[in-house]
Amino acid sequence: MHIPDGFVSTPVAAVGCVVAAGCIAYAVKATNKKMGERQIPLMGVLAAFIFAAQMLNFPIAGGTSGHLIGATLAAILLGPWAGVLIMTCVLGVQCLVFQDGGLFALGANIFNMGIVASFIGYYVYRGGASLFGGRRPGKLVGGGLAAWSSVLIASIACAFELGVSGTVPLGVALPAMVGVHALIGIGEGLITAAVLGLVLATRADLLELQKA
């Protein structure tokens, strides 16, 4: 869902950059002096994992592919503000080094896949997991559902940006983006649940870190 330059107008790109910069500044403030010793390597590993996993496009219907965003996974393991920071690192390197996502569209991409996806993912997960009384199936189902929701809502944000930019009418962009990302989100949900299952099986304590 990386927006290249040209898809969003200058005002939309500028607003995206300002909003993203404000959120990143707050995320630094919210997480500063709160990182525990075990979270330091976790943040590095998550950034590396999300980058590598994003390279693995999986095919969905109709000659289209999708890939993990990873914001939900990061937000569940480290909290939504740290999730914003991890996604900013990933999207920033993808944009600056790998020319994936436009330079001027970076703010909009951070907004969609970093900020929106982290917070939707985090709160849907919290809601889903608490419905199951915090037991293991609830964490996995809640995590999967959260990941799917995060992709869907991020694609809605992206559709609005395209519509407001005048690139494509919103009435055209919205159903098209939601339709394809409802499918891609299933992949996000399955991968997120699988990784959470792996973490629960090996280092369940990592899931409890950001409550403390």
């Binding site: 709160k34 990182m35 010793e37 943040m43 590095g44 590598a52 080094v97």
Partner: peptide, 22 residues
């Protein structure tokens, strides 16, 4: 490209977390 990118991001993520350490 994948290995270089993953190592860059490990370094950035780890370094950033150290700066934000309690």
């Amino acid at each position: 490209a994948g290995i270089v990118g993953a190592l860059i991001l490990f370094g950035i993520g780890y370094g950033l977390a150290r700066l934000l350490k309690a």
